[in-house]
Design a protein around this nucleic acid. Structure first.
Lengths: 161, 161
DNA sequence: AGGTGAACGTTGCATCTGCAACTGTTGCGT
DNA sequence: ACGCAACAGTTGCAGATGCAACGTTCACCT
């Protein structure tokens, strides 16, 4: 009963832990807000739409199975369904049946989609550099990468190669 | 035209930058998902509700101006209004007029709110430790804290002391 | 073959969120 | 004092998202 707070208080975080954890949460949320606002303003793309299109341009043949896309974009499958609906309405992607699995569909990026995401990507990456990468030294970047790999490894036991 | 991609391709991120940036985004999103799911399941609190209550218990007299709370929780003011509505309906906070400014309100945490957030905090912090802090050495935590401070400083020029 | 459980994608429903517009209040400049 | 811009909080509205349930198809096992 020598603690300062109530007797049932759980062990809180010390200064170091607090700075590492809360700082990350706040940084990520604020950066995401900022980047999304610019994407919407300059390119008419939500962050999730940008992420999906980005994964598509980077994929083989510009196509990906919907469920893979959901995993990559960290969206529920229903959320992805409706996002693809919107993108298809805007002519940025099309759905194509999967020849080898009648249950499945591919999302395929269109030429218009490629143009739009390429333009958006330039501004987005400029932003990432200006607000994040330029403030972190090469050595720190290496270290960050190692940390994320460690944590993600623990979070996602079985992940594609 | 010796590049592999189209001629208009912007400079993308190299391996190191990619690992540092994408890793952070993915880590944060997956951790938030995980933590929120557990908070909802075990304590009936959304992540934003937890954050608001947490800021309130940590605040002087368990009270904070609504707009300060919105800033702390990184929510729009309308979003916060409705969140406080919900929390008030559940008896976890109450609104009180601000004596010195007739435009303003305080959100004040109730005894019930304190109980609930204290219980939730224990599990939440256990989770943060298990999935994040325990995987990061003390030195790395120090370094992370320094990085976030640097970035947040640039993002939020004028911040309260 | 036949059957059963799992996977894929979609839909109904409820919830959460932000933007823009609005009301009321403050404080500053004249 | 007065007027006017800025601020605090709320509300209408539209959009995005997840969960649970569903129909269809696949894969495996006997």
């Amino acid at each position: 009963m020598s603690e300062t707070a109530t007797a049932t208080a759980p062990r809180l975080l010390d200064r170091r832990e607090l700075a590492a954890w809360r700082g990350m949460v706040r940084t990520q949320v604020l950066l995401a807000r900022e980047f999304e606002a610019e994407l919407v303003r300059d390119h008419g793309l939500q962050l999730t739409a940008y992420e999906v299109l980005m994964h598509l341009v980077d994929a083989q043949d510009g196509r990906l199975r919907l469920s893979d896309l959901a995993t990559l974009a960290v969206l529920s499958r229903s959320g992805l369904t409706r996002l693809i609906d919107r993108l298809e309405r805007e002519g940025l992607v099309v759905r194509e049946r999967c020849p080898s699995d009648a249950r499945g569909y591919f999302a395929v990026i269109t030429a218009k989609g490629r143009e739009q995401v390429t333009a958006a990507r330039k501004d987005y990456l400029d932003n990432v550099r200006a607000r994040f990468l330029d403030l972190v030294s090469d050595e720190e970047q290496e270290q960050l990468g190692a940390i994320w790999t460690r944590i993600l490894q623990a979070l996602e036991p079985g992940l594609k190669p």
